[in-house]
Amino acid sequence: MFGIFKNLFGSTDNSALIEAIKEGAFLVDVRSSAEFSSGSVKGATNIPLDKITTNLSKFKSKKNIIVFCRSGGRSTQAKNILAQNGFKNVINGGTWHNVNEAIK
């Protein structure tokens, strides 16, 4: 079962995530604004998944982008949308708790 999640959401090795955070990555919480207001990662920007394509300009000129959500599903979709629009510097951080732990 774990292998399925590993294939869907990537390895649990957070070294790339931690390195990107140290380098000042653009942290994007793709959950709804209501979910975001109930708690998120310090310094994160809220761009809900359904608003990603209309906010592509906010991603331009960012060295590293980390997208995350509640379970990893929406962040996977967000990473795919960004990749389809030419962004190669996107990391799927999975859950916001995972990204929060990587910051510590």
Rank of each mutant, 00 (worst) to 15 (best):
S71R: 13
L56W: 08
T45H: 15
L56D: 04
S37H: 05
C69Y: 07
N64I: 03
S37F: 01
A34N: 15
I47N: 11
N55I: 07
K63W: 05
F36K: 01
R70N: 14
N46K: 10
F68P: 08
E35Q: 14
S40I: 05
I47Y: 13
S37Y: 03
S57K: 15
T45L: 14
S38N: 10
S71H: 13
T53K: 12
T45R: 13
D50H: 12
L49I: 13
K51E: 14
A34E: 14
N64W: 00
S40N: 15
I66Y: 04
G39Q: 12
I47W: 11
G72I: 02
I52Y: 03
K51Y: 10
R70F: 11
K58Y: 07
C69F: 10
K60N: 07
S71A: 13
K62G: 03
N64H: 15
S61G: 08
I47G: 06
G72K: 11
G73V: 12
E35P: 04
T54S: 12
K51G: 00
K63M: 02
A44D: 04
K63G: 01
S37Q: 14
I52Q: 02
F36Y: 13
R70S: 12
S57I: 07
I52V: 07
L49V: 13
I66K: 08
K63P: 02
K58P: 04
N46L: 09
I65L: 00
K51S: 14
V67R: 04
N64E: 11
S57Y: 07
I52M: 01
G39W: 05
L49R: 13
D50N: 15
S61N: 14
F36S: 01
G43W: 04
L56Q: 10
S40K: 12
F36L: 00
S40L: 10
N55H: 11
S61D: 13
K60P: 02
V67K: 05
T53L: 15
C69N: 04
K42T: 11
N55C: 08
G39H: 03
K60F: 01
G39M: 05
K63C: 03
I52C: 02
N64R: 03
K62N: 09
F59Y: 12
K60S: 08
G43H: 07
I66E: 05
K63V: 01
S71K: 11
V67S: 08
I66T: 02
P48E: 05
S71E: 10
S40M: 04
T45P: 00
L49D: 03
T53E: 15
N64C: 02
G43S: 03
G72W: 00
D50T: 09
I66P: 00
S38G: 10
G73L: 07
